[in-house]
Nucleic acid binder design. Structure first.
Lengths: 183, 183
DNA sequence: ACGGTTTATGCAACTAGTTGCACAAGGTGA
DNA sequence: TCACCTTGTGCAACTAGTTGCATAAACCGT
């Protein structure tokens, strides 16, 4: 149940319309909490009904008409409550690791190509994170907000670093394997 | 749509009943693909109906009666197909990173305790993985199956290593922060 | 002034995963 | 022998997330 809180965070950073939120979820926030525009619109409706956010009364609210929201005090309070509440880490689900384990019983045929593709994707993502770091976090700035956001970005960088290294190792291992179907 | 394939993999490694599968999902497979017993029973039913697995005819199938399954050729074929098919990586969702980002706007109060708790959990998991590595992958063995499974375990080890390091860094950063509520 | 593209919002149906509970069989101690 | 606990299987309802499509306004070239 984190999508509403992701939206509250995004709206506190900057009041936005549904589409603007969608775009921002495709970039920064979506790096660790993705959401489609349908999820976002639905959730905006709920949050408004619950009195946590409100539509800015700029335009008459019609279809195809931009509608911006900002966070009400109750919304901020709820976000603060959620942030500080203890939460258990959710178990991971990783298809690629599962496939590798499956490959141990049904054979590695065809897997290598996809590993290579994943490696490229992770390399690209890593490069993007590094650009963001250079652009948004030049050395010297150290307000609390910057520190925390930088920390989050470092997690992204380190995770992608892990994946690229692991995939390279996996590919090196594959090269030594007798290929095809065991069993 | 990976749960059926996780189950097929587990059953190929060793034919099992629903409860045995559940236990194994709590240990090895569940480390990267968790599932509850209800999911597993439901999926076993579907897989049997689809002719990918069959119930071993050991006991009469009554309620509260152990029922074991093994994989039919069609099931193995489907798993091989799925393993080699190209798949896009699913976007991550990480609540902790989200909370850190939220903390940048509503304040870090209360978060530190939970970071510490997460650090402990990840340290424990890392220790468990290392034990498994020592027990199941002593140096020297290098069949294809072992190599692949070891690779998967290494991913787990490296991921937990990342998290423990990142959390330690986060806590160190927190120590320097003026605590409480900004804004 | 019209037809096509882009921007923006949204509904409905579906798939996957979770939670809460029910039920049966077998073992165990009082 | 009976109340209770554990093991094992399963249904039903719910929550979260995804996919496919509909609609309306605005902008843009001809």
């Amino acid at each position: 149940m984190s999508l509403p809180h992701a939206i509250l965070t995004a709206l506190l950073e900057k009041p936005s319309s549904g589409l603007e939120l969608t775009r921002r979820f495709d970039r920064s926030i979506g790096y660790f909490w993705s959401a489609t525009h349908q999820q976002i619109y639905r959730e905006l409706g709920k949050l408004e009904a619950d009195g946590l956010i409100r539509a800015l009364p700029s335009q008459q609210p019609a279809r195809g008409q931009k509608k911006s929201y900002d966070v009400l005090p109750a919304g901020r309070a709820e976000l603060a409550r959620w942030t500080s509440a203890s939460q258990d880490p959710k178990p991971h689900r990783d298809t690629l690791l599962l496939r590798l384990r499956a490959a141990a019983v049904v054979g590695t045929a065809g897997l290598e190509t996809d590993l290579r593709r994943h490696l490229e994707l992770h390399e690209r993502q890593l490069a993007e994170y590094r650009e963001i770091e250079q652009r948004d976090f030049p050395p010297g700035r150290d307000g609390t907000e910057d520190r925390l956001r930088h920390l989050v970005l470092r997690a992204g960088i380190d995770l992608e670093t892990f994946w690229t290294q692991w995939l390279r190792r996996a590919l090196a291992d594959f090269a030594e394997l007798p290929d095809g179907e065991p069993v």
